[in-house]
């Protein structure tokens, strides 16, 4: 995993597998210089024991292989960048995962292709609402796939021209709040 956006895509798949109809992807740069990345879903949730096991790379619910490295890899990358990972879950209600990074840390991964990852999730899951909310001291931006489908009056967002336009829209809006070209703008970090 080279980018935080790819972790986003990867962890969101867990939420979708858990039958979530709403997945919230949050990316917040705090005034204290921390980058907080969270995923909240309303999927089937986990009991405490299963939740503890998610940080074990040799635990998975799959049958095609014996390892499950999605969450362990994210935890590793967060810890490498001076942060950490927290999870909370309630059976039948949903799951919440939060990874924190020191935004100016030399070992932090780049943000990466956030718009591409949201777009892929939004285009592939017509019956799920994928929300993306980003905020920095410079401003905030949010987009939801349900709202996008309603406003654009389409059943799905999986059309090449539409995807390109939506990605451009998100990219421009992210750049305006200091998430430029998949990186955190140095000027907001130093201010």
């Amino acid at each position: 995993m080279k980018e935080i956006a790819l972790h986003m895509l990867d962890i969101a798949e867990n939420s979708l597998d858990a039958g979530a109809t709403k997945v919230e992807l949050l990316l917040e740069l705090t005034t204290g210089g921390m980058l907080e990345f969270s995923i909240l879903d309303n999927g089937k949730g986990m009991d405490d024991e299963t939740l503890k096991m998610t940080s074990d790379p040799f635990f998975t619910s799959r049958t095609t292989r014996r390892v499950g490295m999605g969450i362990p890899l994210l935890r590793q990358h967060a810890e490498l960048a001076g942060g950490g990972l927290k999870t909370r879950s309630e059976k039948g209600k949903g799951t919440e995962l939060k990874a924190v990074f020191v935004a100016g840390h030399p070992d932090i991964q780049p943000l990466g292709d956030i718009e591409g990852c949201w777009m892929m999730l939004a285009a592939m899951h017509n019956d799920v609402n994928i929300e993306l909310r980003c905020s920095t001291p410079k401003g905030d931006f949010e987009i939801s796939s349900e709202l996008a489908r309603q406003e654009l009056e389409v059943e799905h967002l999986n059309e090449s021209a539409l995807r390109t336009e939506l990605k451009r829209l998100i990219r421009n809006n992210l750049a305006a709040i200091g998430f430029t070209d998949g990186k955190i703008d140095k000027t907001i970090l130093n201010s």
């Binding site: 410079k138 829209l169 809006n173």
Partner: peptide, 27 residues
């Protein structure tokens, strides 16, 4: 703090899209 109104932007995209591309139903 400037709040970006993605809604208005989306409407613009829709109008541009409706000009040419007809969305196909797949599957």
């Amino acid at each position: 703090m400037e709040k970006i109104r993605s809604l208005a932007d989306l409407k613009k995209i829709r109008d541009e899209n409706n000009k040419g591309v007809e969305l196909r139903k797949k599957g």
